[in-house]
Amino acid sequence: MATVVSPVKTRPSIIVLLQEVQERYGYLPREEVARCARAAGISVAQAYGVASFYNFFKLSKPGKYPIRVCTGTACHVQGGQGLLERLRSELGIEPGETTPDGLFSLETVACLGACSMSPAMVVGDDVYGRVTPREIPRILARYRRRG
């Protein structure tokens, strides 16, 4: 018991490496996950398995215009789900993801506090109330034009 025996540590823990990346970038870029995996001596699949397990890690870069769709009670009843479905298909992403062009990211929120305008969503800083799924392409086009 004369000396401190450090843990078997030939390779750093992937969690620690990913925490550093997240700290630096605010999310986990793919090349960085691959780099960390190599440094930790594991496959990228294993590294992604770890990264996607923990809440702390963000797997995609937030879009330039984050879209937040309200799933509060009022919006739910007024067809908020329909908005979400339409956004999913228009953008080709799931909540928590970002479009390939980096323009939009999609997330759901419990309540935007805009129940009187339900169903509601926020694109960037703009609040949209009483939105119908049909209007979605027009709204998105506005931001695409802006780039």
Partner: peptide, 11 residues
């Protein structure tokens, strides 16, 4: 001899 390392959880 004994030492301690902090491990920060990831949620």
């Amino acid at each position: 001899s004994f030492d301690i390392e902090l491990k920060i959880g990831a949620g």
